[in-house]
Amino acid sequence: MAEIKFEEAMKKLEKIVEDLESGELSLDEALKKYQEGIELSRLANQKLESAKKKIDLLVKNKKGEFELKPFEDSGQKEE
């Protein structure tokens, strides 16, 4: 499971639960979906605990291109 965002994991998990509840899956499909679901659930939980703040500052360089620079929230004085 590549680096997945919490919200993506939740969406996928929701879809899997719906599929399983629909009852149309064959047993081994259901098994595969179930395992995927458990993995997503574990991942989402891990995300919940480990989420850390990420703030960047959008700046436009001379060429008018956008760049993102980390923003320290120490109330950094605007230059």
Binding site: L48, A51, K54, D56
Partner: peptide
């Protein structure tokens, strides 16, 4: 701080 922030904040000062 007190909420779940998995999002990426971009400030345009």
């Amino acid at each position: 701080e007190r909420r779940f922030n998995d999002a990426h904040i971009i400030l345009n000062s």
